[in-house]
Nucleic acid binder design. Structure first.
Lengths: 144, 144
DNA sequence: TAATTAAATGACTTTTTGGTCATTTATTAC
DNA sequence: GTAATAAATGACCAAAAAGTCATTTAATTA
């Protein structure tokens, strides 16, 4: 459904949200380890996310990644759009560029419903809420 | 959502179904042209589909691809499983191998619903019905 | 049985995605 | 100001997906 890059991005941001809620900045090493992602690849992705203003960073000792308050309201839809683009939300299920309301593919209408479902879910999922599930230990990002 | 290979496979099989309904076999060249796919890549995919018994083929003059009667009942779910595997139907939305009912990821339950939606839709979509939409000109696989 | 036609087969190339490595830049603390 | 720390940056490498090319095999028709 999502690219690996996007999966790592979402996991990382939820983890950073959890830490930020406690007033902590967190480094690449800890992030990568905690969400089970390759460290250098994670660095690249985090850099891309800061470019999209989806996370904040600070260099040097005591530095790391963190969320500013309003970022707790960031939705998964925004993250997916930033990393994977909006093909998932708008593209034809069969990959037809010519597919449209006037010339629909055979699964056009059914797929529209599903895409809407997905978009609504991702739009409704905010980092603040997802982070809270980790806090309450009703959800996890890794084994322990 | 699907790989390019899978998109081409679905489009090709719907097109072959349409022709088969009229008692015609159809060659790679015509298939590729009609569904807007690269010819040689299409050949490879069709070969893979015959291997999965999702379509029949005959060599030589008057040869080509066609569906046997019972194949009109093949679902898109079966095609997707054969080409892309069942990751789409069963995998974790965030790519976590450790995600499970006991250790769910933060979007586990919401995603389960969506995956079920997708599976049900694909399971309910049969080549015979999809082909009929082309026949009745209420759906298309290309511009004209 | 020879010529023709069309799928089968396998090696190859290209593009995209996923991932690594080494160096540089910014910040902090002593 | 210097040492230490951590992100930024860019070149590089590997694997998978997407796509091409050339040859072989099987079926048909004359």
């Amino acid at each position: 459904m999502f690219s690996k890059k996007c999966e790592y991005a979402i996991r990382a941001l939820i983890f950073i949200a959890r830490k930020s809620k406690e007033g902590l900045k967190v480094g690449i090493k800890e992030i990568a380890k905690s969400i089970d992602a390759p460290e250098q690849f994670m660095a690249k992705i985090l850099h891309e996310l800061t470019g999209h203003n989806l996370v904040q960073s600070l260099k040097g000792p005591t530095g790391g990644f963190y969320l500013e308050k309003k970022s707790f309201n960031i939705s998964l839809a925004a993250i997916v759009k930033a990393i994977d683009g909006d093909k998932l939300f708008t593209g034809c299920g069969l990959g037809l560029s010519s597919c449209s309301e006037k010339k629909p593919c055979p699964i056009h209408n059914e797929f529209k419903k599903i895409r809407t479902n997905i978009y609504d879910l991702l739009q409704a999922s905010k980092l603040g809420d997802l982070q809270e599930q980790l806090e309450k230990k009703v959800a996890w990002l890794a084994q322990r």
